[in-house]
Write a protein that binds this DNA or RNA. Sequence first.
DNA 1: ATGTTATCGAACACCATGTTCGATAACAGT
DNA 2: ACTGTTATCGAACATGGTGTTCGATAACAT
Lengths: 202, 202
Amino acid sequence: MSHNRVDRRVQRTRQLLHNALLALIAEQGYETITVQNIIDRANVGRSTFYAHYQDKEDLLVSELDDLIYSLSWDVETLPVTDGEKESHRYTLSTLALFRHTQEHFSLYKAMVGGQGIDVVFKTTHTHFCRSIQAQIEQLVPDGGTPSVPPAIMAQYLAGALLTLLTWWLDNHMPYPPEQMDATFQALAMPGVWAVLGIQPDK
Amino acid sequence: MSHNRVDRRVQRTRQLLHNALLALIAEQGYETITVQNIIDRANVGRSTFYAHYQDKEDLLVSELDDLIYSLSWDVETLPVTDGEKESHRYTLSTLALFRHTQEHFSLYKAMVGGQGIDVVFKTTHTHFCRSIQAQIEQLVPDGGTPSVPPAIMAQYLAGALLTLLTWWLDNHMPYPPEQMDATFQALAMPGVWAVLGIQPDK
DNA sequence: ATGTTATCGAACACCATGTTCGATAACAGT
DNA sequence: ACTGTTATCGAACATGGTGTTCGATAACAT
């Protein structure tokens, strides 16, 4: 009767493939990974792989969804002290992002540092854009019309932020996340305030 | 005796391959191009290709050197009115860059727009970094020590600038280069001034 | 217990890569 | 024009990864 049968095998297979991919990315980088490598590591048959994903990029993208979801969740719930929150009324909430990145250093370094993975950049940039644009629009004063559309500001800021994150990872995180956040805010926000026509006096 | 013999054939061959690659990139994008495509288009033998370059990325990189050289030359010599120059004493010289990009729209769009080419991004970013860092260091007040190292500021600004350029190309250049330059300056420079501790009163 | 469905893995066709090598033709110098 | 050199050609080849097919097997839900 019920066609809602959920075969436990498919979830298990997908999980094995995901884990194998992440492990391989951290070990040897993405480019040189072959489908054979993935299925060997995961102990999954060749035809089974292609029954689930078109190719290794398809697997990566499906993986990315999970990662970005966990990132969003972390950024919204990671402990940020009240004092930090208070002083950030007119800024973007990027401190938790730097802390999250620090915690997943080896994986993220393999994904965006060094040669990096193209699709990871694009996807992350798109995600940053959405989040930043929403925050920008909350800063726009009532009745005001910014001289630069928020969408463009978001593009700009997401690119700058991603660049800074990449640099941080590539250079083995020479500064603590708090300082990276402060650097980003110091470089980014004065321009945003000027364009929006607001003057936050600290 | 003289081993300085320069065979005209090798220059011709390299030129043919370069032209073929650019044409194919503009037509169908970089990823799907095969070595066979390149040598067919260029009317060059297979073994000849591999006598000159290791693979198609090697050819692309050698191409990039030329492109960045021509870009540098353009940026330094493209006509910029005295008025524009005057008002840019405390800013970065990016206006010529936007104009240069506009002139080579179709090629640059294929190279950094859409799917883009990874190595083009990296190389361009590195080049921007060098140029911007030099300009930043000229803005540092005598005796002052910026709270953020110029190298990091250059990373940040190069990434932001490249992102803005990419967006511009991807969206079919909805604004003139002058406005794009103004947008970049408005978003970027207040942060730079604040970090450097200078206050340019226009 | 039963019918269903996911997995396995070997075998396969396919395609791009990068190399080899002998023949040919363009080259520079005299 | 002659000569020795060198770049080019292109066919042939080995290599390696890709994505598919299919019959057998085992895990699944009911």
